[in-house]
Amino acid sequence: MKLMKRLMAGTVAGVLVATLFASAAHAAEPAAAPAPAAGVNTFNRLMKPKSDRNPAQANDGIHDPTCEGTGLLQLPKEAFKDMPEASSGNYVDWVQALNKQLIKPRYDRKNPNEEPVVLDLDIVREVKGTMPDVVYPHDRHTMWLDCSNCHPDIFIPEKGKNQISMAMILMGQKCGVCHGKVAFPVAECRKCHSKKKDGSGGGKPAAQAEPAKSEPAKKPTK
């Protein structure tokens, strides 16, 4: 188990480091002439420009542009136009979008008025080293998810009974089951590492207007 984890972390890091070295080698080459030849010496060679975000399905690489259905799909940019921005993933802050009621996703397949069962319980996980401690907020999760989505398969519902590390998260386990696939990805460190170590202030990012929280949580009526 321990060896597996180390191996995993090692492989992941190895791949990345190799890429890093590859790009560093390029960076070390003499600076480009004042008027760089278009194409090869663009300012950002590896980082994608902002305009490439939320591309149309027809040129996103996985949809078939020759398929009629592809042309019928909604463009992500159109749907996200008025949504609060985030710096990665869908580039949408889904927590705020929900809190501000810019979206009203159903909690029940058929009944649009069913309210979620929200649990307001923060779990703090202390982190060794310089990174701020992790605050796991039940409220922001139970607005979307059911207890059974995490308990007991991903997490035993008892503080301290679960071993979690960044290597596991990066490999898609624990928090990484969702973060890095559908929920905001690992790049946004401070959303999880939100509690300062000296105890002064910190805590999870403030939620603006949380209508769902002020109402008492109701049990589903099924």
Binding site: D108, L145, N149
Partner: peptide
């Protein structure tokens, strides 16, 4: 789909 439904559904 998440604009229309919570994960739970």
């Amino acid at each position: 789909h998440r604009i229309r439904f919570r994960c739970k559904v």
